[in-house]
Design a protein around this nucleic acid. Structure first.
Lengths: 254, 254
DNA sequence: CCCCTCCATTTGTCCGGACAATCGAACTTC
DNA sequence: GAAGTTCGATTGTCCGGACAAATGGAGGGG
């Protein structure tokens, strides 16, 4: 009796445009990624060996490998020596990038809203000076915002930034997220150190977010660095635990 | 007047062992990483161009590039076309890998302790069945543990696992973390979906962790997948917010 | 003095090839 | 029939070279 083959190699329509300025490996990786997303490449199926794939596309093997590697790094593919390259099952989404709450809410279709509560220059406290690698008492921007979704408060955001990096106008802060403003100002965000915890709301904190005193709050402190290693932002945020939680995906570094 | 040069190219003692089974690019990336960690490569300094570096080590440029690329992916280096490769400032530690609480505590020198509260087979609830891609009512392992550091409770860990994957003996669960057991059983962890939130402790939860009823707790739910895309574990954890917070570092995907 | 252009430097992309390491299956042997 | 062995397939590593693209500074022109 003929046993049905479980995971045959999947033929696929792939093509690259050599006249395009888009790198060939990137064109290929995007086509593969979209093929996975729309289900043309089913989970568990083999991708076909690299050499044959390269020949079929008129590319060299290193180029094909570069395309595949980028998807392996994203968690979409798994390579196995002597076996081949397989599509990973599961609902892999985003491996937790450095994203702003604004973008997260917008991506979730929640239409975020921002109210600027304060936007001033203040002397840096010890904690802020340490985080931003400045001297205690140096002037820094202080921005306090309330973030709402569907008209309901979700988070209270308090950020401190070094002076001279960015023009912080209330109107622009209300229209978009802080990270977008920083990117638009030519700052290349590189990495961030985060600390996520929880605590009971004080009377003031509860008032701001519409929660009773003592209600559990989710807290996040974050220092963001640009590609030159400068600390460009320090944020202390509190989220209504009843309305918000952090969702993300991790990959095992291998 | 001679202006002091800000960031000169740093000469460095590097060498590779061609008789070693360790890949050359890996030898090089490790040497560079340790040079950065011990400060021999100061933040902001240029690494010297790839071609010269390759010639100095007797390697080809692709090999050197592969070594450098792995450190770029780790966030330790930044490349700039026409400029060079620079060491990133800042205290980059670990870009948030999939780690167990046990390993985290151990790495922090806290000498973790585990008490197994329950270790049984139960029918899967709807939530657990959905997370593990099983049928509701199917038998699953249920493990309840209390994690302590310095003799104080830190977290209550409740995990559910499919049957047939792993032998779960109390003694082994008390000696190490769950992830180490899974790896030792030949399971290749690949990715995980997490959700981090906060809530007020119920009477039972407070009792377990030594907190008053209503105290804020940090909660984490996690489904872990292996490299074949199978869900191999679902965990519901609660942490004492007064004694624990998540610390991690993010990199911007570029 | 300022702005524009040109150019050297450096990384980004791509090619073609070679051999090694590992896996799984077919084969052989006991 | 079961266990060990061999072998083909596939990815991992490495080489050497070539040209393109971006950057920043030097030089020239206004």
């Amino acid at each position: 009796m003929a046993k049905p083959v479980a995971d045959p190699t999947v033929p696929l329509e792939l093509s690259v445009d050599r006249s395009s300025p888009v790198p060939l490996y990137f064109q290929l990786s995007q086509q593969l990624e979209s093929a996975i997303e729309r289900g043309a490449l089913t989970p568990g199926s083999l991708l076909g060996n690299e050499i044959e794939l390269a020949g079929r596309l008129g590319l060299s093997r290193p180029t094909v490998r570069q395309a595949i590697q980028s998807l392996v790094d994203k968690g979409l593919l798994v390579r196995r020596r002597g076996v081949g390259t397989q599509v990973v099952h599961s609902q892999v989404k985003r491996p937790l990038e450095l994203s702003s709450l604004y973008d997260d809410l917008e991506a979730a279709g929640q239409r975020p809203e921002t109210r600027v509560l304060a936007n001033t220059l203040v002397p840096a406290s010890a904690e802020i000076a340490a985080a931003l690698a400045l001297g205690e008492g140096d002037e820094v921007h202080r921005v306090e915002r309330l973030r709402l979704a569907h008209g309901e408060p979700v988070a209270y955001l308090c950020n401190h930034l070094p002076t001279g990096l960015l023009a912080l106008e209330d109107a622009r802060l209300e229209a978009t997220g802080l990270y977008r403003l920083m990117r638009a100002a030519g700052i290349t965000l590189h990495s961030a150190r985060q600390s996520v915890g929880a605590r009971a709301a004080t009377a003031v904190e509860g008032e701001r977010l519409g929660e009773p005193t003592g209600a559990p709050l989710l807290t996040m402190k974050r220092t963001t660095f640009d590609d030159k290693g400068r600390a460009v932002e320090f944020g202390s945020h509190t989220y209504r635990a009843s309305r918000y939680s952090f969702e993300f995906q991790l990959l095992v570094r291998s």
